[in-house]
Design a binder for these strands. Structure first.
Lengths: 211, 211
DNA sequence: AGTTTTATGGTACGGCGGTACCATAAAGGT
DNA sequence: ACCTTTATGGTACCGCCGTACCATAAAACT
């Protein structure tokens, strides 16, 4: 049949435009017309690919979920091959901190959606439970392995420590988003926590030692 | 002159209505008409006491600030007079967790406003920086005193520990709000952290010991 | 008693946003 | 060549929301 354009690509372009609008002016300013303008397409096109606004919003959330998983996977894939548990954990948790501008935008929109999901029964709260749960389980497994390898004290409970690490990271991330402290300060607190958790053995970072 | 009604009381009644609307259906559903209906007054009255919607929103934020301070003050005032540093700290941090329904509503709306402030330059981000900073300073002072009294290891840095405690508490609070874990689980993680921080001396709780 | 001020109700207006409707160009199949 | 389907544009409609305007009851002060 006719023109047959790549639907997935169009939809991705539009949801990306929505993400940019949210990052710039907030979720409450998202309108079909604003998204269309940001994406450089007509209002009608946005309607064409996502019948309704609710659809668009949901689709964007799903896109964010995938982006989130890709984000963590990429970060962890970039680590040196024989990695210490401490370095792995630090990378894992640091990904929850809005350091660069892209990361900040991502966490801002994610938080916006999370707040929306707290009251809107239409919007599935599932991603905000399953997502963190998945991360927590992943981290818990890594910590269990580290403990088995003797990199973590035997007294530490992997599940509790994973929960504590991620809650701490998320709390620090929010404080950065809100402008309470710079990203470096948040990272310093996180490192302090890691040092306490793993004990004082060498931190494994190949860079200069921090004073 | 005439009827002379208590303006402060009327304004308080209306901002309280706004808070209830947010807690129930989210900040994005707040409309002057909805607030008026919730408060049981006419739309015109809301306009009369707060000329504009932006005014109402800002006034409600100020009311929330006061409510926040009162919340913490009341909680701490309710503690037994000779209180251990650990019990004080636990009460202080637990106040950041949405345990009962009122607390949940409060933290939900506070978070909603915080997210709004991340992009809206009209809405002062100040409360979300000054507020936490004040809490952090308060807690830091308490920890310093506890350290001086020998209740906290001399190696602990009060400022860092205060930041870490509040970030952790806030992160746990969010995970509860979002439905990732029940309040008791969040409290358990917090207690674990406190035990590690203060060491294994008696926890000071006069109630039954938890298994 | 009258007047002025406060407090309150009702309502209309203008704008914006989501959705629906009507067109039409382009491309593939027959 | 023609028809059918896809992709796209434009636009109109309806509803809701913030704001402004017009009224009026009630109460203090003179």
């Amino acid at each position: 049949m006719p023109k047959t354009v790549d639907h997935a690509e169009r939809r991705a372009r539009i949801t990306a435009a929505l993400v940019r609008v949210v990052a710039r002016t907030g979720l409450h300013t998202v309108t079909l017309r604003a998204v269309a303008a940001e994406a450089g397409v007509s209002l009608r096109l946005v309607q064409y690919y996502f019948e309704t606004k609710a659809n668009l919003v949901h689709a964007t959330l799903r896109a964010l979920e995938e982006q989130s998983q890709r984000r963590w996977a990429d970060r962890l894939a970039g680590l040196p091959s024989p990695v210490t548990a401490r370095a792995f954990t630090e990378a894992f948790c640091a990904e929850a901190l809005p350091t660069d501008e892209a990361s900040r935008a991502f966490h801002l929109i994610w938080t916006s959606y999370a707040v929306l999901a707290m009251t809107d029964p239409e919007l599935a709260a599932r991603p905000f439970v399953a997502g963190p749960n998945h991360l927590e389980a992943q981290l818990s497994d890594a910590l269990a392995a580290a403990r088995a390898a003797g990199e973590l004290p035997r007294t530490a409970d992997p599940a509790i420590e994973a929960a504590r690490l991620l809650a701490l990271s998320h709390g620090l991330g929010t404080s950065v988003l809100v402008g309470q402290r710079p990203p470096e300060a948040a990272l310093a607190v996180l490192r302090h926590h890691l040092t306490e958790l793993f004990g004082q053995r060498a931190a494994g970072g190949s860079g200069g030692a921090t004073a």
